[in-house]
Simulated assay, not measured.
Amino acid sequence: MNVRIRKYSWQLAPADVRTIRQAVFVEEQRVPPELEWDDTDEIADHYLMVLPDNTPVGVGRLFSTLEETAHIGRMAILSAHRGKGFGEVLLRHLVSEAAGQFSELQLSAQEHAIPFYQRSGFHVCSDLYDDAGIPHVDMRCLAPELVSDAFGTRPTPMLLGEDQDAWLFDSESNMVGLMDSVAGQARQRLWLYDRLLDHDLYDRLRFRELISSLARRHRLSDVRLLIHDDKPLVKRRHQIVELMRRLPSRMELRLVNDDYPVEDQPFLLADREGVVYRHDFYKPEGFAKFADSGRVKLLAESFQRMWDAGRGSLELRELPL
């Protein structure tokens, strides 16, 4: 598509940026001006999309309040240019701009626009809420670099239950992004099998927050951790242990019984569709799939057998509060 997208600070942004937002949000969607114009404009990068003859088409903004997280917002395409793919081009440009710097992207989406954002790697992560009289949901992308590299090749990248293609990984950063993307979309069940709960992998703030959010969601939440060795948990006082103590009815850890057959490869299962599978306990190599109910069913059956034969951790039980 023959367009140009230029980046500006708020102080140097041309009048077109304000004009487009005024036309789309304030005049067309009846957003109160005091809500549209906020302090965030001062700290955000503003993007203006224009045609080859400099005709303005649309705008968006990108800002960060946390080291690893960026926010996309105020995306607007003028009515005369809608339905032509300009919005998707602008969104993917913003994702690609942020991908190298941030490991998480967030945005607030109007309810009718959810499929639009899903096509660019975002998934819903909140209940419906009202913003300026318009129904919204929060959405996020937890692996923006991988998603941006795959633009144009997958209809709904990393969407649980929809994206049927495998995502291969051979580095810890890619594995972490995929693991978070799978775990972050679980609605009820998250089952993890590994040699141990490696601190760098499983004691990260984001992963703990994803697990905590799932465990607290409702009384049927089911988070199970099945490992071979619990000594590192005690030695370094793993924060996941604290989480289990606060949510004992929603989270449980067991040790495998080596007298029974056990799997040679670690895996993570989310609901009945998502899987992250490693080829080796000691290497970040494997694949993730977001819609593979057949494989997940087989691995869940294996997990259940190991779980039933497993035992609780005496080490954790004896750990002082």
Rank of each mutant, 00 (worst) to 15 (best):
M1Q: 12
V3C: 13
V17M: 11
F25Y: 15
E28Q: 14
Q29M: 15
R30I: 00
T40Y: 13
D41F: 09
D45Q: 14
D45K: 10
H46G: 02
T55L: 05
H71C: 02
A80S: 14
G83H: 11
G100L: 12
Q101R: 15
Q110N: 08
P115G: 08
G121M: 07
H123Y: 15
Y129K: 05
G133H: 07
C141P: 01
S148N: 03
T156Y: 15
L159T: 13
L159K: 12
L160Q: 05
D163Q: 06
Q164A: 14
N174I: 01
G177C: 11
M179W: 04
R187K: 15
R189D: 11
D194Y: 06
L196E: 14
L197C: 05
D198E: 14
L201G: 02
F207Q: 03
A215N: 02
A215L: 10
H218M: 01
D229C: 09
R246K: 12
P248Y: 10
P248V: 07
M251F: 06
P261D: 01
L269S: 04
G274N: 08
V276E: 02
Y282T: 10
K283R: 15
K283C: 08
P284Y: 10
P284H: 13
F287H: 12
E301G: 04
F303A: 05
Q304N: 13
W307D: 06
D308W: 00
D308V: 14
G310V: 08
S313G: 04
R317F: 11
